[in-house]
Each structure stands twice: as structure tokens, then as C-alpha cells.
Design a protein around this nucleic acid. Structure first.
Length: 592
RNA sequence: GCGUCGGUAACUCAGUUGGAUAGAGUGUCUGCCUUCUAAGCAGGAUGUCGCGGGUUCGAGCCCCGCCCGACGCACCA
């Protein structure tokens, strides 16, 4: 049961009877909320203010009329009218019944009704090496979104798109070949060739190739080496990546290979689906015309900067028979190439095929988590998903601001050449992953973050993790204490609530905060925003710590009924703390 | 030049439903450990919500213009 939801339903029924048909004019503006603590009311609505216009009466008059009806609702104790607000107080029995239901529901308290299937794609880093620190935010946010949306009722599938097709894989194989030759004793003092990937992570793979094949492939031509070892190389890199995400407590439902998409002919299928489609555009004079969504043409020079030499060169050779997607009708700066004039397909074409595949797998909602540096890609991709699904599938791209790195307050730039590359696994080794998660999740994805490589290892006060986990450990320690005082484990019984001091404002606020949880989960899920859960956790922890600091003792050796009531409250707080932490992919601590 | 995201206390950020006196943490000042773990609690101080207009009974939130910052702007991935 959701006590607030129940109130909304009951009050809306009373209001509907009172206003009649005019209600639909203003129904969206009627809001319900928990009033500020100083108002000492449990729940409140602005309905009277909103209805003032349609009823042509002063808000207090309307409020009075609604209140007199609502007074008879069984769980309502009293109603105050303050300004235009209608403020409701519940009976103590209603609160006790509700708090008991939290404990009975346990892990399922706050679960949403079943909702749509969602395909959540995140990280999808090139399989050319282990994840680095720049991927941390995406990994942690993706994990939390999975948990949060699942809690809210969505059926979530997580997916990693393996970009195993393109020049970066050639570079990878070239790098491996070089390392393999070194493993065979060649080029040992030769510096790494330009463009090759540095880092030690290729050495084990090179060594194992040497062990398996000796020096058989030392002079193997690049293309042949590529064909022979590409799959093995990508598998090895994906093993590293899987390990990295596993260290954060994350496993994916699916891994989808770009190569497989391309080789299956899916690009041509998707393009032939788009080929007959027309869109309406209007020219400068406001004349509209129907044009093809895909067309043959030639893309103009880059916008906003002069073309470089390579681009001028490419442009001269271009015969003007590129295949273009008219992404400009979807708000993109310009149309985008899907097939070059030599017939080869672009990365965007692979992505079209990949998203066509997602649509055909029957997901009405696709969520992609991108770094802010991919912001320019959003419009063409959302546009093509609309076209591919005839507007039936919604692609949401959640952009994350990049994490700025610092070392002791000084900006820190990662550079492949300088070798100061910070791997995700290095960070995970040095900090508690739950601390890292809560730190990352405590801010909106839209907020740029600074990550200090030195300070993160120190126990920092601005990390909310200690505050929240401390509240959690206190709930567990109370249960242990109860056991040591009364000689038996605390086991909840519905009669335990009898002596709960609900007249105390802090206890009332705590109950109210717990009651807010189900709608909070929906709100956070709707906004795809785990940080909303973190904010809530801090508020809940704060209230619990406040109660701890009052004269109200949780455990009173001389008063077992009172202790049972306080332990019941503690258990309901613990239920919600544990549940909310689980929505973030974080485990509760039982002891600090 | 265009696009996306930001600008709220000294600092880091909430304020995602337009609603009650704009909040929290950090830092700072004052109290609280013989008592359920003080990684905590209680109290004080701290604001031109970037600037200017508009809509509204009511704007930090919505609309328009401007300023500042981050990121991105061929067919790379």
C-alpha cells in the first residue's frame, strides 16, 4: 500500500464530486505533496487554489468544502486549512498500519507496476584494451539505471555493443603483431610504432601467441595477421573489459558484435527499409515538397572550420554518388553519409543496422548512455530510429558530462603517448567500489564532475557514502544491541507498534519520508536519474541520525514494549535504506 | 557561426509537478562522548538563484534576448 497514493485517489474523488465536469480543465494542475516540516502536516494539496478560477470562489471557501467531506475518510485524523492549502494529518493507527506494511513487503516495498521493455546500452568502448577511468561514470550510471528501472517496473535488458569493425581494430592487430615480434626476441629496443596502442595489457596476449606458434608469424603480412588473429584479439580485449565491469558488480545481458551485424547484411536490409520513405521539407519561401529520406548526393565541406588537406583531397576524388540520410529534417546540422562514393559503409550505417535490430527485437524504449563528447551524434541517431520504427520506438540518449581528472588539485591529462593512462582497474584496486559508486551517483549526469586521483583514496567528507552507510550500520547495530539486552533476536510482530511515539515530530517526519519512497522510485526512474535516489537516501539517513541524537532511546532496558516499537521503526528504515542502495548497485554495510 | 549541457551560500551541489520563509554537505563559530559506534547530534552565521525583459494570483523552475563556461561540429569510431 502507498498511503499517499491512497489519499490522492480519495481526495480526487471528493473533488470530482464537488466541481463536476470542470475538473478536467484543471486536473493536471492539482498537486499533492508533503508539506514543509514546520507545517506539521502529513500530506497536502493545492487543489483549492487551482479550483478558485473555475469555481469562482475564494480558495479558503473551497478548501473548507473539500475538507468537510474528507474529514470522514477513515484514516484522516484532522485537516487544517493554511493559506489555500489543504493539509491532512493521518491517524496514528493509519501510520502504524502503513509502517508495518513496509516490513512485510521487505525487498518488494516500492516495486512499480510492470512497465515497458527497455534496452539499455552503455559503455560500448572500443575493444582495443581495458576500460580506463573515463569509462567509470558510464559503467556506474548504467548499472544503477538498470537496477533503478527494474525496481520501477521496467523490464530492462543491458547491452554492450562491440565496435569490432573499423580502423581501430587494425591498429590493435598491428600493435599485437609488434608485441608478438618482441615476444619472439625481435625489435626489442625499437620504440612503439606511431599510432600503436601502448600499455602492458597486450603483452600476455603476445606471449601466449609466441608460446603457441613460436615465430611462425613474425613476418606475416599485416592483412593476413589481421584475418588470422582478429577474433582472438577482440575476445582477449573483451575478456579484459568484462573483468573490469565485473569488478564493479556489473554483468551484461547481451554483447552485440558490430562485425556480425555488418556481415549479416543487416545494413542493406535497414537501408532498403528506409529507401522508399519520403519526408516533407520546406524551403526558404515556405514551399513544401516531398523528398526521399535516403538520397544520392555529395556532402558539403565541414561547417565551422576550413577543410584540412586530407579532406580537400577526399573531396576532389568524390564523384558525388554518396548515399546520404536526410538527418537535417530531424534537427541535425546536416545530412549524413551512410555509403561513401566507393560503396563502403560508414560507422553510422552500422549503427543504423544495429538500431534496426534493436527495434525488431521489440523494445519500445531504447536508452543509450553516451559521453557528452558524443552529443553531436544524438540527433542523427534519434532521427533514424524514428524513421526505422515509423515513430513507434523511442530512442533516448542520456548524455553524461565528462569527468575531469585532477591529481592533488592540479588538472591531469591522460595521454597515451606519455603513458600516464589511468585504468579503471587501477582505481577499483585502490578505492572501495561502493564509495566510488555513491560518489559518482550523487550528482546529476548533467553536472560536470572532478575526480581527484589522490583525494579519492582519502576518506573524504564530501562523499555522502559515510553518512548514508553509517545510518545503515546503526540500524544493524540496534538489532544486535536488542539481542544482547533482551536475550533474543528482534523479530517483527504487528503488535510492536503499540508504543511508537508518533506524536514526536521527528518520528512523524521519518514515517513520512518512508511513505514517499514508492513515488520517489517512479520519479527517479522517469527521469532516468539515480542521483534523485541518493538525495533521498541522504534525507532519510539525516532523519534517522536525528532521531538517534534525541532523548528518544531506541533500546530501553526497562521498557521492552517501547524498544520493540522503536526496533520496528528501525526495521522499516533499514528496509528502505537497503532497497534504495540496491537501486544504485550498492551493498549496505552492517558495520563500519 | 551552429548544436547540446551547465551558471543557486566561501566551496561542491539539491531544488525534474510553477506553490508555503530558496535547502543539504563541506568549511567556519558554539554546545554534546560514564549512556544504542561522535564517520554522529543540536544551534549560530552565510544568497543580486549569471544579466535584462515577458507570461502567471504566484517564477530558481516556463518564454524571448544577452553574458560566461564545458563539450561537439565532414565520410573517424
Amino acid at each position: 500500500m502507498d498511503i499517499f497514493k491512497q489519499t490522492e485517489t480519495d481526495l480526487l474523488a471528493i473533488i470530482a464530486e464537488y466541481v463536476g465536469d470542470d475538473l478536467r480543465l484543471v486536473k493536471d494542475k492539482i498537486k499533492f505533496s508533503v508539506p514543509p516540516a514546520k507545517m506539521s502536516a502529513d500530506y497536502s494539496t493545492n487543489a483549492a487554489m487551482v479550483l478558485a478560477k473555475v469555481k469562482k470562489q475564494a480558495p479558503p471557501v473551497i478548501a473548507q468544502a473539500i475538507a468537510s467531506q474528507a474529514q470522514s475518510i477513515q484514516y484522516v485524523n484532522n485537516i487544517d486549512i493554511v493559506g489555500g492549502y489543504i493539509n491532512i494529518n493521518y491517524t496514528k493507527d493509519a501510520w502504524k498500519k502503513f509502517l508495518g506494511e513496509i516490513i512485510l513487503a521487505g525487498d518488494h516495498f516500492g516495486d512499480g507496476q510492470p512497465r515497458e521493455r527497455v534496452l539499455l546500452e552503455f559503455i560500448s568502448a572500443n575493444p582495443t584494451g581495458p576500460l580506463h577511468i573515463g569509462h567509470t561514470r558510464g559503467a556506474i550510471l548504467g548499472l544503477a539505471l538498470d537496477k533503478l528501472l527494474t525496481k520501477a517496473g521496467y523490464q530492462v535488458t543491458t547491452e554492450y555493443y562491440i565496435n569490432d569493425y573499423g580502423v581501430q581494430i587494425h591498429t590493435l592487430l598491428r600493435s599485437i603483431h609488434f608485441r608478438y615480434r618482441q615476444a619472439c626476441g625481435l625489435d626489442v629496443n625499437t620504440p612503439l610504432p606511431a599510432g600503436c596502442y601502448p600499455g602492458d595489457y597486450l603483452l600476455p596476449l603476445a606471449a601466449s601467441l609466441q608460446k603457441k606458434y613460436g615465430d611462425r608469424y613474425i613476418n606475416c603480412p599485416e592483412t593476413e595477421f589481421y584475418k588470422r588473429f582478429k577474433d582472438e584479439a577482440v575476445d582477449a580485449m573483451m575478456t579484459l573489459i568484462r573483468q573490469d565491469v565485473a569488478d564493479l558488480g556489473l554483468t551484461y545481458d547481451n554483447f552485440v558484435s558490430e562485425t556480425k551485424i555488418v556481415e549479416s547484411g543487416a545494413i542493406d536490409q535497414a537501408l532498403s527499409f528506409l529507401a522508399p520513405k519520403k519526408v516533407t521539407i520546406s524551403d526558404a519561401e515556405g514551399q513544401t515538397q516531398e523528398v526521399d529520406l535516403l538520397y544520392q548526393g555529395k556532402l558539403d565541406a565541414p561547417l565551422g572550420r576550413p577543410a584540412n588537406e586530407q579532406e580537400q583531397e577526399d573531396s576532389r576524388h568524390d564523384t558525388g554518388c554518396q548515399t546520404l540520410f536526410r538527418s537535417s529534417v530531424f534537427g541535425d546540422d546536416r545530412d549524413r553519409v551512410v555509403k561513401r562514393s566507393d560503396g563502403s559503409t560508414t560507422y553510422f550505417a552500422s549503427d543504423i543496422a544495429y538500431h534496426y535490430d534493436k527495434i525488431q527485437r521489440g523494445y519500445p524504449i531504447l536508452i543509450n548512455l553516451f559521453g557528452a563528447d558524443h552529443g553531436g551524434y544524438v540527433k542523427r541517431l534519434t532521427g533514424v530510429v524514428r524513421a526505422l520504427s515509423d515513430d513507434q520506438t523511442r530512442l533516448e540518449v542520456q548524455l553524461m558530462q565528462l569527468v575531469k581528472l585532477e591529481k592533488n588539485g592540479q588538472p591531469f591529462k591522460m595521454s597515451k603517448r606519455a603513458g600516464n593512462f589511468v585504468l579503471l582497474s587501477d582505481v577499483v584496486k585502490q578505492v572501495d567500489t561502493d564509495e566510488l559508486k555513491l560518489f559518482i551517483l550523487s550528482k546529476s549526469a548533467d553536472t560536470p564532475m572532478t575526480f581527484d586521483l589522490v583525494k579519492v583514496k582519502q576518506k573524504s567528507q564530501d562523499n555522502p557514502v559515510y553518512y548514508i552507510q553509517y545510518a545503515c550500520t546503526r540500524t544493524f547495530s540496534l538489532q544486535r544491541k536488542y539481542q544482547s539486552v533482551f536475550g533474543a533476536d528482534y523479530i517483527y510482530q504487528s503488535t510492536d507498534w503499540a508504543d511508537l511515539p508518533l506524536e514526536h515530530p521527528l518520528i512523524r517526519q521519518l514515517a513520512s519520508k518512508l511513505a514517499r519512497y514508492p513515488s520517489l522510485i517512479q520519479q527517479a526512474a522517469r527521469h532516468r536519474a539515480p542521483y534523485i535516489v541518493v538525495t533521498y537516501l541522504q534525507e532519510l539517513a539525516s532523519l534517522f541520525h536525528s532521531v538517534w541524537g534525541t532523548q528518544l532511546k531506541f533500546i530501553d532496558t526497562n521498557n521492552q514494549p517501547r524498544s520493540q516499537a522503536m526496533l520496528a521503526l528501525t526495521t522499516s528504515v533499514q528496509t528502505v535504506l537497503v532497497s534504495a542502495l540496491a537501486c544504485l548497485g550498492i551493498k549496505p554495510k552492517q558495520e563500519m
